[in-house]
């Protein structure tokens, strides 16, 4: 974690109101892992008192660059979208805990709902670099919101579902998952809460059916690991990246909690990545 000034290198609108910005930030590029985020200060210092958390979309260690992918949803993101190459943007990061991929996982299933792809994008690169096979299931309302396949590596299998059927399969992205459930060694998801809750229910069902076949059984399988530890998450079939209104992003203000099954957990510190079974999904938020 460090306070730093990132220099905007390139900015473009890849989808309506969705921006992809490339920043030169050596410290972030060197240390960030898939799933982590940065807390970005908006250019208006007087009226906007909070930083904005963004997933680190991609990391280029060679060029010392990272990219952020966001949607303009208010004043802060609006101002950020208007930043020009050469501008410096104060950032705090990398923050949070990354995705935990089991070393024995070969088949990685990523499930993204809309902008949720921003939370998973870095994991695609990391998994491919580790020699894993990656399938991305992407869900959006209509074809206009579908993440362009040109921004994905060629090795990825990219499956799209749109709610209005304008592209790919008609329906929700969660409907695509059962076809890949048996193939996937581990699944990672990011998107709206109802989607994640549905996936968590699916993952519970999968575990009930497959039981002993799940990963982690062989090595130290009987030994209990504390909930939320990296080991426990590595054994979990489904990991989710959560969003929440955030204050400090370092764990001090307790503003970004969600209910876990053992009480409140901080999205900024224990998360933003959680094993699906850590979260109390029946709670409304």
């Amino acid at each position: 974690m460090r306070l730093l000034d990132a220099e905007l290198v390139e900015t473009r609108e890849i989808l309506p109101r969705q921006w992809l910005q490339r920043y030169r930030a050596p410290w972030l590029a060197a240390g960030a892992r898939a799933g982590q985020f940065v807390h970005v200060r908006t250019p208006d210092y007087s009226g906007l008192v909070l930083r904005r958390p963004f997933s680190i979309n991609t990391v280029d260690r060679v060029a010392s660059e990272i990219t952020l992918h966001f949607r303009t949803a208010g004043k802060g993101t609006e101002l950020l979208a208007h930043a020009r190459p050469g501008d410096t943007v104060p950032m705090l990061g990398p923050l949070g805990r990354p995705f935990e991929v089991d070393p024995r996982t070969h088949h990685v299933l990523l499930i993204a709902g809309g902008l949720g792809i921003a939370g998973l994008r870095a994991l695609i690169d990391e998994s491919l670099a580790a020699g894993r096979q990656v399938t991305v299931l992407f869900g959006a309302a209509s074809a206009g919101d579908v993440y362009p396949s040109s921004l994905l590596p060629d090795e990825v299998e990219y499956v799209v579902a749109t709610e209005d059927g304008s592209l790919g399969q008609a329906g929700l992205v969660t409907d695509l998952v059962p076809a890949y459930e048996a193939w996937a060694d581990q699944a990672f998801a990011c998107g709206p809460r109802p989607m994640l809750a549905a996936l968590a229910a699916l993952a519970r069902g999968r575990q009930a059916r497959m039981g002993v076949a799940r990963l982690g059984r062989k090595r130290g399988g009987g030994k209990p690991v504390p909930l939320g530890s990296p080991q426990a998450r590595r054994r979990s079939w489904l990991q989710v990246s959560l969003e929440q209104h955030m204050g400090c992003a370092v764990g001090a203000c307790l503003g970004c909690v969600v209910w876990g099954i053992e009480g409140p957990v901080r999205v900024c510190r224990e998360g933003p990545v959680f094993a699906a079974e850590e979260i109390a999904w029946e709670e409304s938020v």
Binding site: S46, G47, L48, V49, L50, G76, Q244, H245, M246, G247, C253, L254, G255, C256, V257, V258, W259, G263, P264, E283, S284, V285
Partner: peptide
């Protein structure tokens, strides 16, 4: 345990919080 989330939101030149003494 504190209050149910969401607990913070930005307002004009300020923020609202309802941590609830977690």
């Amino acid at each position: 345990l504190g209050n149910p989330p969401p607990r913070v939101t930005e307002t004009p030149a300020g923020m609202l919080n309802s941590i609830g003494l977690q």
